[in-house]
């Protein structure tokens, strides 16, 4: 019985991230539009888009390979598994020890690996430019993420996110290194989710685009699955920041459904706050030239590195 409940909680987490991800995207778009004094599409618009795309036939280029048709699922699943391993409403779920923060970063790396590959599958120049730039960003964003993981792991004494969240809850304190890690994480999250100032999620046909260039050839259900993966990735980074830097409301391991309900409500508030902050940030800043981005990501890497270095020097910083 207890096992069934544990499995149900884990299943609930998987469904929760899947159900909320397009909503977060819709919310962000709505707030952005309001900030620009536009009415904006309704929050449920991403759900409608997905439903529409799923029902349409997929148009596939004549010379596309089997990888072109299977990679969207790999991208989606790797992101989904990564997103459902991050504590959202409760810590210590039954499969939470499957992968730690480093493994979650690597799972996102798997998703990116396939995304960059399919950009090159049809053999168009747009796909190649997107893949090439994505690969370049990743060479800096991934080590930055690892360094941020190191900072967090050294403070909490664990790379397991459940343990990290519990540690953060029980040792509430302001640390220089944590601040650096938060800054780094924000930069990495912006780059990884193709947000302004790194990439513009609202454009097609722009020479500086990255993410959209890779998926230009996709349509129908394949596009839906990739869009879903992108939404999940945004949700993942918001949940990650919430789990590490604002773990309040997370149900402790072994807690009952009541705590879980509290956890879900708290999580919804965190997503709301994350969406608002992202929208405000995006409307207040301009997009960067593509070769300025490595400097930004290099800064994230240095921030993470500095955080680790401070912790190696003194455990209390």
């Amino acid at each position: 019985m207890a096992l069934m409940l544990d499995l149900a909680a884990q299943g609930a987490q998987m469904s929760l991230v899947l159900a909320l991800a397009p909503g977060l995207l819709g919310l962000t778009r709505k707030i952005k539009a309001r900030l620009l004094r536009r009415r904006g599409p309704p929050i449920v618009q991403p759900y409608r888009d997905l439903a529409k795309l799923l029902r349409k036939e997929a148009v596939v280029a004549e010379n596309a390979s089997w990888l072109f048709r299977s990679a969207p699922y790999m991208i989606f699943v790797a992101t989904w598994v990564a997103a459902s391993l991050i504590p959202t409403f409760a810590t210590g779920l039954i499969f939470s020890w499957t992968a730690d923060l480093i493994a979650i970063t690597a799972l996102l790396g798997s998703a990116r690996f396939f995304l960059a590959l399919v950009g090159m599958d049809v053999g168009t120049s747009f796909g190649g430019i997107g893949s090439s730039r994505e690969a370049m960003f990743a060479t800096l964003a991934e080590p930055a993420m690892i360094m941020i993981s190191f900072t967090v792991a050294l403070i909490a004494g664990s790379t397991q996110l459940s343990s990290v969240a519990e540690h953060m809850l029980s040792h509430l304190e302001l640390r220089v290194s944590l601040g650096l890690a938060l800054f780094g994480l924000i930069i990495v999250a912006l780059a990884e989710n193709a947000r302004i100032p790194v990439d513009n999620p609202a454009t097609h046909l722009e020479l500086t685009m990255v993410h959209e260039a890779m998926i230009l050839e996709y349509s129908g259900r394949h596009l839906a699955v990739i869009e879903m993966a992108a939404a999940l990735k945004l949700l993942l980074y918001v949940s990650l920041a919430a789990c590490i830097f604002a773990p309040w409301g997370l149900a402790p391991p072994g807690a009952g459904p009541l705590f879980w309900a509290i956890g879900v409500v708290a999580y919804l508030f965190k997503l709301l706050a994350g969406g608002c902050m992202l929208a405000v940030f995006e409307t207040s800043i301009a997009k960067m030239r593509v070769f300025r981005v490595p400097e930004l990501l290099g800064a994230a890497l240095m921030l993470g590195f500095l955080g680790v270095l401070l912790l190696f020097v003194s455990r209390s910083l």
């Binding site: 799923l54 036939e57 148009v59 596939v60 004549e62 010379n63 050839e217 129908g220 839906a224």
Partner: peptide, 22 residues
Amino acid sequence: TAIEVIHRFGSRAIRRASAWDC
């Protein structure tokens, strides 16, 4: 699961066409 659900409740039709490339 994802493939099964999408193929069952969405579409499984494929049409081959020349590449879009904007």
